[in-house]
């Protein structure tokens, strides 16, 4: 199986609500996985109101801005190996080059290619919604902000 490296895999977002968030606000927690090399995995995150989400860019995966981890490939699975001593290995199934499945979070990861004209990724809230909706929002409703 092949992991694509000309972009990143965006994990289905988690909806955060209620916890000191007004009831009419939707906050999204979002992980993006960039398989930098054959052993380096960089995870960038955002926790933000849906209207405040910003695009992931190549810079999002700078060492200081993301969580560096390592991984190994085993068959059609990625074995993620966190560097932190309190972290535990977990696996990501490779469904195909564009679709992964995180067995730890039970969420899908979908591939987004870097734009050809720059390193900037054009992902935004619209793309998240277009990509993943409908996703489980719990008791919350997505609103256009």
């Amino acid at each position: 199986m092949i992991l694509r490296q000309n972009g990143y895999y965006l994990e289905e977002p988690s909806i955060i609500g209620g916890h000191r968030i007004k009831s009419d606000e939707i906050v999204i927690a979002l992980n993006a996985y960039y398989f930098k090399s054959f052993s380096e995995l960089m995870v960038a995150s955002q926790v933000s109101r849906i209207g405040d989400l910003v695009d992931f860019t190549a810079k999002s995966f700078d060492f200081e801005k993301c969580i560096p981890m390592s991984y190994t490939l085993k068959g059609n699975q990625v074995i993620v190996q966190p560097i932190n001593i309190y972290g535990s290995d977990y696996t990501i199934d490779i469904k195909n080059a564009n679709l992964l499945f995180n067995n730890d979070t039970k969420k899908e990861l979908r591939f987004t290619e870097w734009p050809s004209n720059s390193n900037m990724n054009e992902i935004n809230a619209k793309i998240i919604r277009d990509t993943f909706e409908p996703f489980d929002c719990g008791d919350y409703q997505l609103i256009n902000t």
Binding site: A29, V47, I67, P82, N84, G87, Y90
Partner: peptide
């Protein structure tokens, strides 16, 4: 944690404090 890509697990508060 809101996001736990490292699959962190703690056994006691000392580990939390350490983290």
């Amino acid at each position: 944690l809101y996001l736990n890509p490292q699959n962190l697990n703690f056994n006691n508060f000392s580990q939390v404090a350490d983290y």
